[in-house]
Design a protein around this nucleic acid. Structure first.
Length: 478
RNA sequence: CGGGGUGUAGCGCAGUUGGCUAGCGCGCUGCGUUUGGGACGCAGAGGUCGGCGGUUCGAAUCCGCCCACCCCGACCA
């Protein structure tokens, strides 16, 4: 047993994941079961995710606000499906200030109810619409089984909540935000997600329709990585969110909500990571470049560090996120492995030979060993760093997309389907929508309908043999 | 909630047929030599053995109860 090495993905994917999260210092277990501490390195990654998303939210007209953590219990019961869906996983506060509360308060599992209540107060006229608010928050859902980032009792996310005058507008918003998520996932995280609609049984409690982006992890399991809900008038009815239209008619609003959580960090880890550790997409990596100085004697150290300092200053000035690893007492070899574990996309090595020759070494995280190293002259290195980071970003997306496509199989009969979802990856096939059949398949194979797929024409359902116009992806999931 | 497992130094573990001063590896501190793919030597620091109770001359070790965490299944972002 070599303690320096991670378990390989091949021998134990779950163990690989758990150890990697801890050893890369993304997160740690908390004293409370099922909760996690997000460590600075993990939080820095989350902050970059936040920036990329927030920018997109602002660009689509949303504004940020903050709603309270505590929600009167009675609010949760106002929407029938919502309460049924969330009741089992609520944390409830019964005491405050040493006294039992008259009405227990639930810790928000999501904020439709409290925000709906406020919207009812704020919206009177069609002139108040649409209202497009997002909040960055933590929520609590009392889950049975937890796993760092993927499912914890408390997690961090953003939840967008919008209210519209017409059904059409709300549907457009739902689709718009699904596309925002897909764009973010693909272009920032290099996670090639498939966006689509969820089945009836997989949809959000209280929604008319739920859409999600589905990502394939390296063990071929699916991960729901972001969701967008069309809530119809369900919450408007339950919370009395009404407005007067142009014709002085009182109408209920149409609302939506959408969320993406720290779970997405899990998606990044399991989409790109390898046996050496994390591989972070340059667009989101806390450090895009790590500089490792190499020297033996004090004279060498001085010469090397003056070059290191110069280029680190220049890189910062040019907007790169960098780290100089000037730790004493650990060897360069150790540092290489350490930053590979942490997934820094690009490493610059500078030693006495480089100083002498006026060159430096670039080492790509996505191509290990000698193959990923290049020796480049000092002049023009800024260009090379930028270019290489772009190449890495592209390569990560290309590799992940190829992996995903290699593990999706078209199926037309149930035997093949079972073989695919149990041994090979995702199944794609014609599907006659039927909740009972869906449940049977789940009981039989543990695979669930991830999302409906684009479909043209008509085909025969792989399970029921019925004619259908719908196609769907099925897979085992997290 | 069902099944399985584990609690001994920061981490990973040994010790568990009761026995004397509780040990090993990694990590940590100091000094020196090292440094282009996970360095080495010397000297150190660090423990209510998960908790409570019981048996005993004596408990990490035996018994009882409790607690916590991890893994696998039913629910979920």
């Amino acid at each position: 047993m070599d303690e320096k090495k991670l378990p390989t993905q091949e021998e134990n994917f779950s163990d690989w994941y758990n150890q990697l999260v801890l050893r890369a210092e993304l997160a740690d277990y908390s004293p409370v079961r099922g909760c996690m501490v997000v460590r600075p390195y993990g939080w820095a990654l989350w902050e970059n995710i936040q920036k990329a998303l927030d920018q997109r939210f602002k660009a689509t007209g949303h504004v940020n606000a903050a709603f309270p953590l505590l929600i009167p219990q009675s609010y949760m019961t106002k929407e029938k499906e919502h309460v049924e869906g969330f009741a089992p996983e609520l944390a409830v506060v019964t005491h405050g200030g040493g006294q039992e509360l008259e009405e227990p308060l639930v810790i928000r599992p999501t904020s439709e109810t409290i925000i709906g209540t406020m919207y009812a107060r704020w919206i009177q006229s069609y002139r108040d619409l649409p209202i497009l608010i997002n909040q960055w928050a933590n929520v609590v859902r009392w889950e049975m089984r937890t796993k760092l980032f993927l499912r914890t009792l408390e997690f961090y996310w953003q939840e967008g909540h919008t209210a519209h005058a017409t059904e059409q507008e709300a549907i457009e918003e739902t689709e718009r935000m699904l596309n925002v998520y897909a764009d973010f996932a693909i272009n920032e995280a290099a996670v090639p997600v498939l966006p689509g609609q969820k089945s009836e049984s997989e949809k959000f409690a209280g929604a008319k329709a739920t859409y999600s982006i589905e990502a394939m992890m390296k063990d071929t399991k699916a991960l729901q990585s972001g969701t967008s809900h069309f809530l119809g008038q369900n919450f408007a009815n339950a919370f009395d969110i009404k407005f007067l239209d142009e014709n002085n008619q009182l109408q209920y609003c149409w609302t939506t909500s959408f969320g993406l959580s720290t779970r997405f960090i899990g998606a990044i880890i399991m989409t790109h990571g390898d046996d050496q550790g994390l591989i972070l997409p340059p667009n989101l990596a806390p450090y895009q470049v790590v500089i490792v100085p190499i020297y033996r004697k004090d004279e060498e150290r001085a010469a090397v560090m003056s070059v290191v300092n110069k280029i680190s200053d220049e890189l910062v000035e040019n907007g790169f996120r960098i780290k100089v690893d000037d730790r004493d007492g650990v060897t360069p070899g150790f540092k290489f492995n350490d930053w590979e574990l942490k997934g820094v996309p690009l490493r610059i090595e500078i030693g006495p030979k480089d100083v002498e020759k006026g060159s430096l070494v670039l080492a790509r995280r996505d191509i290990l060993g000698k193959a990923g190293k290049s020796f480049i002259p000092m002049e023009g290195y800024l260009q090379a760093v930028g270019d290489t980071l772009r190449l890495i970003q592209e390569n990560l997306l290309a590799k992940a997309t190829a992996f995903r496509d290699e593990h999706i199989f078209e199926v037309s009969d149930y035997e093949t389907f079972k073989d695919v979802v149990e041994n090979k990856g995702w199944a794609l096939g014609w599907w006659y929508d039927d909740a009972e059949n869906e449940a049977n398949i789940k009981a039989d194979t543990r695979a669930t309908l991830r999302v409906f797929a684009p479909a043209e024409g008509e085909g025969v359902c792989f399970y029921s043999g019925k004619k259908t116009k719908q196609r769907a992806y099925f897979a085992r999931s997290y």
